[in-house]
């Protein structure tokens, strides 16, 4: 990465409470509430607080086209309620029946489910709520991929393609599908999985209050067999062990939580190490 000096001008996380309640307060168009999935609500909750802290709208009325959104979500979430309805209406004995799916499950399917299943919807809700029409990069599903969005945001900022960047990570993990996935790979981790989101707002300019400067981003990758090394797909940082497993949000949370402390020791360094060759690190120094 280039020798970047990018400022963190806003940060927020969401790990406790009802994300829908927070998102409802933040939503400027209340009619959109019915379209929100938990993943959308988690993303909007963290982004809204970070955006508010950065105060970009106050100092720059023309931010809309010059702000980009760079998001990383976890693997496909699916809520228990709709899933159970699909199951009840699609089964015949212990087996799936296409006839029942067509005749019972399909008519009972709420059209809103389609919107709630789409992984790119957090991008819509954040952009729409804050009227952001600049660039974007939407990816998934783990910590190395969050580093990819971070790097793209930094490059876009350095090149002047955008002036402000919302860099977010959203982990909707307390649902049937993600729980199933985690249990299959690491039962202990599955038991500690929580819902979490975290957002950093970055700027290359000097107009906004800086809480820290990005000093170094490094990523190392060596191709691996994903079917033989599934542990590498669940990614967790060795040096950031907490009671909860926050999945894709972990790296970003490390910084948002550290920056929120009153006694802060800089520089902050987070390192995810999947194995000897696969690792990512970010260092944030004083403003």
């Amino acid at each position: 990465m280039s020798n970047a000096k990018i400022n963190i001008v806003g940060f927020a996380s969401f790990t406790q409470g009802d994300p829908f309640a927070t998102a409802r307060q933040l939503l400027k168009d209340k009619k959109l509430f019915k379209f929100l999935s938990k993943q959308d609500a988690l993303g909007l909750s963290a982004a809204g607080q970070a955006w508010s802290q950065a105060q970009i709208e106050r100092i720059d009325a023309n931010y809309s086209e010059r702000t980009g959104i760079y998001l990383c979500v976890g693997i496909l979430p699916f809520e228990d309620g709709p899933l159970h309805t699909l199951y009840e209406n699609s089964k015949e004995g212990d087996h799936f029946s296409m006839k029942n799916f067509s005749n019972k499950a399909f008519p009972a399917m709420n059209p809103l489910l389609t919107f709630k299943c789409l992984p790119n919807m957090p991008l819509f809700h954040i952009s729409n709520n804050f009227q952001i029409t600049g660039r974007y990069f939407m990816t998934y599903p783990g910590i190395p991929e969050w580093f990819e969005v971070l790097k793209r945001a930094i490059d876009d900022l350095n090149e002047g393609v955008v002036e402000y960047a919302i860099v977010g990570a959203i982990a909707d993990q307390q649902n049937f599908l993600v729980s199933h996935h985690l249990q299959r790979i690491n039962h202990a981790l599955a038991a500690r999985a929580i819902d979490a989101s975290s957002v950093l707002i970055l700027s290359a300019g000097q107009k906004l209050t800086s809480f820290g400067k990005i000093e170094e981003v490094s990523v190392s990758y060596r191709p691996f067999d994903p079917l033989g090394q599934k542990e590498l797909l669940i990614q967790s940082a060795d040096d950031y062990q907490t009671d909860s497993f926050t999945g894709v949000a972990q790296a970003s949370l490390f910084f948002t939580e550290a920056l929120a402390r009153t006694e802060l020791k800089m520089p902050l360094r987070y390192c995810w190490r999947g194995d000897e060759w696969n690792y990512c690190a970010l260092t944030v120094g004083p403003p």
Binding site: V73, I75, L76, L118, P119, N120, L123, Y136, F137, M138, T139, Y140, P141, G142, P144, E145, F147, E148, H181, V219, Y221, P223, F224, D225, P226, L227, L233
Partner: peptide, 25 residues
């Protein structure tokens, strides 16, 4: 999960940098 697809390709051709996945529909 879909990202496995990316790592299978990266492994097969020994690509040196991490794969990037785009889910912008």
């Amino acid at each position: 999960p879909s990202n496995i697809c990316g790592h299978l390709i990266s492994k097969k051709y020994q690509l040196t940098h991490a794969p990037a996945f785009h889910i912008s529909a």
